Simulated assay, not measured.
Amino acid sequence: MNRITLDAARVIIHDTMAFGREKGMKPLSVVVVDAGGHVLAFERADGAPPGRFDIARGKAYGSVMLGIGGTAQRDRAEAQAYFIAAAGAAYEGKLIPVPGGILVRNDSGEVIGAVGVTGDTSENDLEAGSVGIKSVGLTADG
């Protein structure tokens, strides 16, 4: 697969949210973007705050634009805050450098998009999104 289809994006979202419910996580919001950072699909669980779209998109967008997952972005921010601040300015504030931003790779290891999950702890967001990505046979790189 060289791109994320709409059907795959919907399954990723469904399975991410189902995992969150199964594990008793707070209501999640999930976005899937393509390799250019364009939103393919988004869903916000009942009870999730309305502002979660921007956070989920920022996690996914930052991952695909920088080519590194949210965990690596957080680590980079701790080591080189000036770089992440500059990248955030370059991307007009659409960068949320924390776990829960997950690159999606195909069988060849190419980045074909990203998933952004928000609502619980960043580590739980990452775990839930990784489950969703793997459910469609793709590789999660968070």
Rank of each mutant, 00 (worst) to 15 (best):
G88Y: 03
L28W: 03
A48E: 00
K59D: 02
V39G: 02
A90P: 03
E92L: 11
D34W: 03
R52E: 05
Y91I: 07
L95Q: 08
G69H: 10
L28G: 05
E92R: 13
D46K: 08
K94G: 01
S63R: 06
V31G: 01
R21G: 01
V31T: 09
V39E: 12
A79P: 02
A41E: 15
R74P: 01
F42M: 09
K26L: 09
K26F: 06
A35E: 05
R57C: 05
V33N: 03
G58Y: 03
H38E: 10
R44V: 06
E22S: 08
R52G: 00
K26A: 09
P27T: 05
E22K: 13
G20P: 02
D75E: 15
A87V: 15
P27R: 06
R21A: 08
A89D: 13
D46C: 00
S29K: 03
A90K: 11
V33H: 06
A60S: 08
D46A: 11
R44K: 13
H38V: 08
G69Y: 11
F83T: 09
G69L: 10
I84G: 00
S29M: 01
R74F: 12
E43M: 04
L95H: 09
A72N: 10
G20Q: 02
M65V: 07
Y82S: 14
G20C: 02
G47W: 05
D46V: 08
P49M: 08
A89K: 15
A77L: 15
A45E: 15
G67T: 12
D34E: 03
R76E: 14
G62F: 09
G24A: 04
A35T: 04
R74K: 14
E92H: 13
V64T: 11
K94S: 12
Y61A: 02
D34T: 03
P97T: 07
A60V: 07
D75Y: 12
G70H: 05
G93A: 10
R57V: 12
A45G: 00
P49R: 12
S63C: 11
Q73N: 06
V33I: 08
P97L: 12
A81P: 14
K26R: 14
V31E: 01
V30P: 03
A86S: 14
V33F: 06
V30H: 02
G51E: 06
S63K: 08
G70V: 01
G24C: 01
P27Y: 08
V30S: 05
G67S: 12
G67H: 14
F53K: 10
G47P: 05
E92M: 11
D34A: 02
M65Q: 14
G36W: 04
Q73R: 07
F42R: 04
K94R: 13
Q80E: 14
G69C: 09
G62R: 13
G51S: 08
D54V: 01
P97Y: 13
V39Y: 00
Y82A: 14
R44G: 04
V31K: 02
K59R: 09
Q80M: 11
R44F: 05
D75K: 15
Y91H: 13
G62C: 10
A45C: 04
A86H: 12
S63V: 03
L40C: 01
V32H: 00
H38R: 10
A85P: 00
Y61P: 07
F42E: 04
K26V: 00
R57Q: 11
K59V: 01
